[in-house]
């Protein structure tokens, strides 16, 4: 029994370590009332930080089936992040400035 537990523990540790290292972080800015990237591709489990680089408040939200979120509004220098946990195309917008749109392709 003990001989089985050790390899299983090691395997589970290895899996969780690999899961941690596989999830990546991406950054998308908000500058001059535009997202700095029109689209990005990420993997399931990746995190995207949305950074406001404008003098005014912005918002970030999505009503897409693949990820529904609303990061509220925040000022210059602040950032908020979203983890994309499901495959699909996520349309991201700023509710305050609807000309600001971008797409996150979750693969």
């Amino acid at each position: 029994m003990r001989t089985l537990i050790l390899p299983l523990t090691l395997l589970s540790l290895a899996c969780s370590f690999s899961a941690v290292t596989m999830a990546a972080e991406h950054e998308v800015g908000q500058k001059d009332k535009q997202f700095t990237k029109k689209s990005i591709s990420v993997k399931v489990g990746d995190k995207v930080n949305f950074v406001n680089n404008d003098e005014i408040f912005h918002n970030v939200f999505s009503l897409s089936d693949a990820k529904l979120f609303d990061l509220g509004s925040y000022p210059k220098g602040d950032s908020r992040s979203v983890t994309f946990d499901q495959k699909g195309v996520v349309e991201v917008e700023c509710a305050i400035h609807p000309d600001m749109k971008m797409t996150v392709n979750v693969e």
Partner: peptide, 14 residues
């Protein structure tokens, strides 16, 4: 206002 198109709290009365 805009809340009817984008049902987010921020858009209530916008």
């Amino acid at each position: 206002g805009r809340f009817s198109e984008r049902p987010l709290r921020l858009m209530k009365g916008a």
